[in-house]
């Protein structure tokens, strides 16, 4: 099994006919994802790479069971597209786009919460379970197995998940929360799902400096039965400098590397110093 989506999930892509949408549709299909509908205003009734097109999300949802939506929509139009999916009742919504204005983001995230939708992102690679990928993670990084992965950053996840895959340790699900200031989902939400998933035997948490998401996660990790291995990026970052992600900044002495390591260690998680050590620590736990 897996969390949020699995091989049976039916997926809709919004912005399916654009350059990014088309490229990643094919990658998702190659991964085994069942993409059953695409939304492209003005192109309804057509077919794109074998996928039926609709003008609106509402129409797509009327004609298909939609378990999850992936948005390949430019930042200025993301608020509208995400609200359209939320209001149409889609329960898992992946917003890949970066540089969405934070005021738009707050509306998307809070409305999702009100309507019971899980928002993954914005500014994320998305997520993947066996035969169901939502987003842009390279297909080769993922392999099926017993480890749940939840992360704030993309390429670093590929790095760590790739290193697990290389030594034959696969994943139940890999989830990217996104690098923005107001992400739709939290470590805690995902950890709870991994804790409840019978196939997940251990969890990797990939965090970074800034904010309090890792500290919040630590509180929950204390209560978990499954082992957690963490890696945190940003040890060498000076305060007050934004390290690429809106969330990755040490402000007013809060969100430091040291504080997060302390919280996670006290909660019983093992914190890897180097990215490649995650693999070794997980291997220990799975013995």
């Amino acid at each position: 099994m897996a969390i949020l989506v699995n091989a049976d999930s039916k997926v809709m892509i919004q912005g399916i006919t654009g350059k990014q949408g088309t490229f990643h549709l094919k990658q998702m299909q190659a991964f085994g994802t069942q993409v059953v509908a695409g939304v492209a205003p003005g192109k309804g009734g057509g077919i794109h790479e074998g996928v039926p097109l609709y003008d609106t999300v509402y129409e797509a949802c009327k004609n298909h069971q939609i378990d999850a939506a992936v948005l390949f929509i430019p930042a200025p139009f993301c608020k509208d597209a995400a609200l359209e999916a939320i209001e149409s009742g889609v329960k898992v919504i992946v917003v890949v786009t970066e540089h969405i204005p934070v005021h738009d983001e707050m509306i998307i995230v809070n409305r999702g919460k009100q309507k019971g939708a899980t928002i993954i992102g914005p500014n994320t690679f998305g997520m993947a379970s066996w035969k169901c990928k939502l987003g842009i993670m390279p297909n080769i990084a993922f392999s099926p197995g017993p480890v749940g992965v939840v992360a704030r950053s993309g390429t670093l996840t590929y790095e760590i998940v790739g290193s697990l895959t290389n030594i034959g340790i696969g994943q139940t699900s890999v989830v990217g929360l996104g690098g923005d200031k107001c992400p739709g989902s939290s470590f805690v939400q995902m950890l709870k799902m991994f804790e409840a998933d019978p196939d997940t035997k251990a969890v990797v948490l990939i965090g970074e400096i800034g904010g309090n998401a890792e500290e919040e996660a630590s509180e929950y990790i204390k209560t978990m039965s499954k082992p957690v291995v963490a890696y945190l990026a940003g040890k060498s970052a000076p305060p007050g400098k934004r390290m690429g992600h809106a969330g990755a900044i040490i402000e007013r002495g809060k969100g430091t590397y040291e504080g997060k390591v302390k919280a996670l260690t006290a909660a019983g998680a093992k914190v890897a110093t180097f990215p490649h050590e995650v693999r070794d620590l997980i291997k220990e736990h799975l013995k």
Binding site: L156, E159, K235, G244, T273, F274, P275
Partner: peptide, 17 residues
């Protein structure tokens, strides 16, 4: 130079370590 904020931070950290 790296690609992606997370891996860039991790690269800086690794170099410093």
């Amino acid at each position: 130079m790296a690609n992606g904020a997370g891996i860039t931070m991790a690269t800086l950290d690794t170099v410093q370590l």
